[in-house]
Simulated assay, not measured.
Amino acid sequence: MNRPPHPDWSGWHDLPQQHYLIEPRCLAGGGDLRHITEHLRASGWKDRSRAAGPVVFDHPDRGLRVGFDPAPPGRWTITGQASGHQPPWEAKFTARTPVEIIAGLTDALTQPPSAHAPNVWAPLDAQGWTTRSGQHVTATSPDRNAFVQFHQPSPGQAHWWIGARNEHGRAWDAELSPTTPLYLVQALTTALADPRPVMRPRGMFAPSDRIRTTSVSLRPSELGAWQQARINSARAATWARNAWATARPRSPRPSTAARVPAGHATGRR
C-alpha cells in the first residue's frame, strides 16, 4: 500500500506576517523593549533585571543606568551619576514613547562623545522644525505633532520637555534634567526628527488620523536578521573600543633606579 508523502512542516514557522511602516515615527507607540535592551547587552552593559520586575541595565562602571518599570502607567528612567565636572542627570520617558526615539539617547550612551560641540536644535532645523525663543525655547515639527522645549518656569529652574500629541491628546512625554549632557540631548533630537518610518506588528500601534501606514509582509527570519544586524553592530563597536583600549600605548613609568650624579660613573666590581 502506497502512503502519501509526509508533509514538510519545516517552513511553517517562518510564514510571512503582516507589519506596518508608521510615519511619523513619533506617533508609532512604544514598540519592542528589546530594541533598547539587547543593544545595551551587546554593548557590555550588565542586566540587573529581576523576574517579573523592572528592567534594569547598568553600565560596566555603574555610573549609568537604564531602567523600565512596567507597572502602570509604565516609565523609562535613565540616570547618570556625578563624574568629574559632570553633575548627576536624569531622563524620564512615558511608556508610549517609541523605543527608536529613546534608543537615540541610549545608543549614544554606549559610544564615546563626539569631539564636536553639540547642538540640540541643529537636527530639528535640518528637518524644517520651527523654533520660537522667549522665556522658553520651543521647536515644533512641521506637522505640529511633536515638540522639544527648554522649559524654564522660574529663575533657577529648568528642564527639557519633549513629547508628541495626536488628535486624541497626549501620546507621550519625556522630561530631562537641565544637567543632561547636551550630546545626549542632541542624539535624542536626532532620533526624534528622523523622517524614516518605524515598523510595528499588526495591532501594536494606536489608530490615528495623523499617521500614515504602509503594509509590509515579513518572515520572522527576515525580521530576526534585521534585529541581529543591530546587535552585531553593537558587539563589533564594543570589541573595537576594548581592543583599542588594550593596545593603546601607556606612558612609561618613572624609573625607580637611583640616579647617579654626572661624573660619578659606576662600574662592576
Rank of each mutant, 00 (worst) to 15 (best):
Q152M: 12
G31R: 01
A28Q: 02
R96Q: 04
R210F: 09
S233Q: 14
I36H: 00
R241L: 06
L40I: 05
A262H: 04
H13C: 02
A262C: 04
F57D: 04
V148L: 14
T131A: 13
A71S: 12
P70G: 02
T179H: 10
A146N: 05
Q127A: 11
D61T: 06
V66L: 03
A234E: 07
I101L: 15
P252Q: 08
L192M: 14
W161R: 13
D143Y: 06
V260G: 00
N232Q: 14
P201D: 02
L192N: 12
G80M: 07
P7Q: 07
A158H: 09
A229I: 03
P4I: 02
Q17V: 05
G31F: 01
R202G: 04
Q149N: 14
D47E: 01
W161V: 13
A206C: 00
P112H: 11
A245T: 10
T79A: 12
A258E: 06
A265W: 06
W244Y: 12
P201L: 04
E175N: 11
S154Y: 15
A265L: 08
N232V: 04
R250P: 08
D61C: 00
R219H: 02
W226I: 01
A122Y: 06
L176A: 08
A187H: 13
A139R: 09
A174W: 10
L15G: 08
W244P: 05
A234T: 09
L192H: 12
W244I: 11
R75K: 13
Q149G: 13
P153W: 08
H116N: 12
A42T: 06
F68A: 08
R62S: 07
H85S: 15
A71F: 14
T130P: 01
V120R: 13
A126E: 03
P54V: 10
R202Q: 10
A258K: 01
V137G: 05
N166A: 09
W160P: 09
P73A: 04
A225P: 02
T213Y: 07
L27N: 14
Q135A: 15
L184G: 10
G30K: 03
A258F: 02
P254K: 00
S43P: 05
G163W: 03
G63V: 03
R210C: 08
